[in-house]
Amino acid sequence: MTEMTISSGEAVLFWILAPLMVMGALGLLFARRTVHIAVAVAGVMVGLAVMYIANEATFLGVAQVVVYTGAVMMLFVFVIMLIGVDSTESLKETLTGQRWLAALAGVGLLVLMGAITTRAALPAPVGLAEANADTNAVGVARILFSDFIFPFELTGALLITAAVGALSLTHRVRLGAKFGQKEMAAAKLKAYGAGASSTLITNRPNPGVYARHNSADMPAVDAAGEPVEASITTVLRIRGQESNLPSAEELADAGRPYGQGEEPAAVPGAADERKELEQ
């Protein structure tokens, strides 16, 4: 086998990509918002895909983009949306000594693995030119479908099991009667009869509908001309980005008067109320 050489182009690629990837990875440690982290990690994944291709693993590089960046990281983002993008995590440590331990473990791993890889007596790199003679995908396939056919079949079983497991884990058993449109209407009228606001009877408008601005931080106005507090997304409230409702005078100035007597202020408990209704 002949010794391979690493082209300077590859070196340039590495030295550009590697710092970017490390910075993206460091986002895992220091970024506060989960979404930012997810995007940073996705970037690292793409970087890795490029490195795979540089390392003569074309098939894996493509698979990396498809599987990780395309599926796994998007799944992460999806779950983040599901759980709530707004849930920023405080970086204050609660376990005593955890930071120190983590630092010790991280630095220790780094130093030791660095020491091992640099001090190890490794053979001269051979390169995959020979193995990739019939393209990389064919080469991988040859090994995958001969020596590793049985593990390959097993992975099929594993994936099916994972799918079924995910289904059963997220499955929710309906404990009460189905709460359909009819029941919802009855419940709304009942609440109204008990003295709740009349806005509850009608359908909820989408955020910003009938509002003065076409903006999510403005409460919608119902058919009676009253503002619907619940139409403001919780995200805005948590971020403190909702603005106060304009006063009646301002509205009147704007030529879009509200109904009389309503205190046009954001209700702090609105988010809770909405959650209760959903549940």
Partner: peptide, 24 residues
């Protein structure tokens, strides 16, 4: 056994480091 999975994983990581040190 404080129930915190992060404590457990910290113990494991430090253990890995120690094993590596011993081997080296």
């Amino acid at each position: 056994q404080n129930g915190h999975v992060r404590s457990y994983s910290a113990a494991m990581s430090v253990g890995v480091v120690l094993v590596l040190v011993i081997v080296l």
